[in-house]
Amino acid sequence: MSANIRVNIINLYLIKFSKWFNLIMPVIVLFYQDNGLSMQDIFWLKSIYSVAIVVMEIPSGYLADVWGRKKTLLLGGILGASGFALYSFSFGFLAFAIAEIILGIGHSFVSGADSAMLYDTLKSSNRNQEYIKQEGWITSAGNFAEAIAGVCGGLLATLSLRLPFYVQFGVAAVAIPAALFLREPKTHAVNTKKKFSSILRTVKQTFCHRQLRSALMVSSFTGTASLTFAWFVQPYFQEAGLPISLFGVMWTLLNLSVGVSSMFSYKAERLLGQRNSLLVIIIGLSLGYFLAAWEVSLAGIGMLFFFYTLRGIAHPILKDYINRYTQSDVRATILSLRNFVIRINFAIIGPLLGYFTDRFSLRVALLVAGLGYLLSGLAGMLPLWRESIKEKDKAHRMP
């Protein structure tokens, strides 16, 4: 492995760590309530955060392509640390809202640019075939960090509800030197003179590529299904009768299952091939929804692990399919567009699924979500399916 690849991968691990080692999640609601916020205030803050991400997702991808992935990741790191610094010394809704906006913008500058940096780093040394493996390991590291942080954050909160925020600032600040030490790949020629309208035209032309459009849709639908399922986990625990004292433990174990399976996603894709991998991902995740709906009990928690394990395998593979059909000069923009679609999808279907949960039951909501993902995923994958068949037939006809 060349020095440039090694340096970039190590620093991308550190950026992922700073992003996912989230100490505040186990105590965030308690912290808000301790500062006088109601549950309605809390949901408003999360809405503000999501809007900040949606508004900046595509522009941040554009900046990563024309300004440079290193500079964009550095800005994302600075904003992330600044957001937690503001949180650490704030006490009211308005200051928290400003902090959420800063954190949302910082998140958008990192998402997309990190995967684009990884892919082009490998491509610069003709090692882009290793992308699934490296993306899987970095994703795995992020999930391990999230799992460990859940335990550490809870312990820190026993001393003070504000202490996790102080430490979180230090964790987030790790991304700043990590971004500074990144080396921009030669395959990504930065062109700061390129106008935003020209980038949009390039993206539009790229979307005429059926395989890219298909890869983007399947990856976005799968990302939406994963995000949606995560919000069903705690209601599932409650309905299954899991003691509240074990919520954090189970959450940690679920994230560990994602981390372990992500490490082996490249082997799964190599074993199954592109066409079968897509089928296993879409049908398997849909089945995870159906099985969770079928058995809401302590024993049924095993169904959650089935979904999370497959989730860990799915995302590195699906991101690789996007990268295969994307030009380097718009790679971060396309990956940011994926995240944009995920957030929009969730904003639309989240309240609807919440209505089904409240009006009918958790089982009905899980069934509706699973069926919706199954149909949209299968429809989205058709061009990739047909392309894999053509390539297979072509290979058979070769002497």
Rank of each mutant, 00 (worst) to 15 (best):
M1F: 05
N8E: 02
Y13R: 06
K19A: 08
K19L: 08
D41P: 07
I42K: 11
W44N: 11
A52H: 03
I53F: 12
I53H: 05
V54I: 15
V55W: 08
I58S: 06
G68I: 00
K71H: 12
G76D: 04
F84E: 02
S88C: 02
F91L: 06
A97D: 06
G106H: 00
S108E: 08
S108P: 08
T121P: 01
L122Q: 10
Q129R: 09
I132S: 10
E135F: 06
N143G: 10
F144P: 07
E146R: 10
I148S: 07
I148A: 13
V151W: 09
C152F: 13
L159I: 14
L161V: 09
G170N: 01
G170W: 02
G170M: 10
A172D: 05
I176W: 05
P177W: 07
P177G: 08
F181L: 11
H188N: 09
S197M: 14
S197A: 15
L212N: 00
V218W: 07
F229Y: 10
P235H: 03
E239N: 10
F247C: 04
L256V: 15
S262P: 08
S262C: 12
A268C: 07
L271S: 13
R275P: 00
V280F: 11
L291M: 15
A293P: 05
M303Q: 03
F305L: 10
F306D: 00
Y321K: 11
R331T: 02
I334K: 04
L335W: 03
S336Q: 07
L337D: 01
R338A: 05
N339D: 13
F340L: 15
F346P: 02
A347Q: 13
L352E: 07
L352S: 11
F356A: 14
F356S: 05
R363A: 02
R363Q: 15
G372N: 10
L378I: 09
A379I: 14
A379C: 11
M381F: 10
D393E: 14
M398N: 09
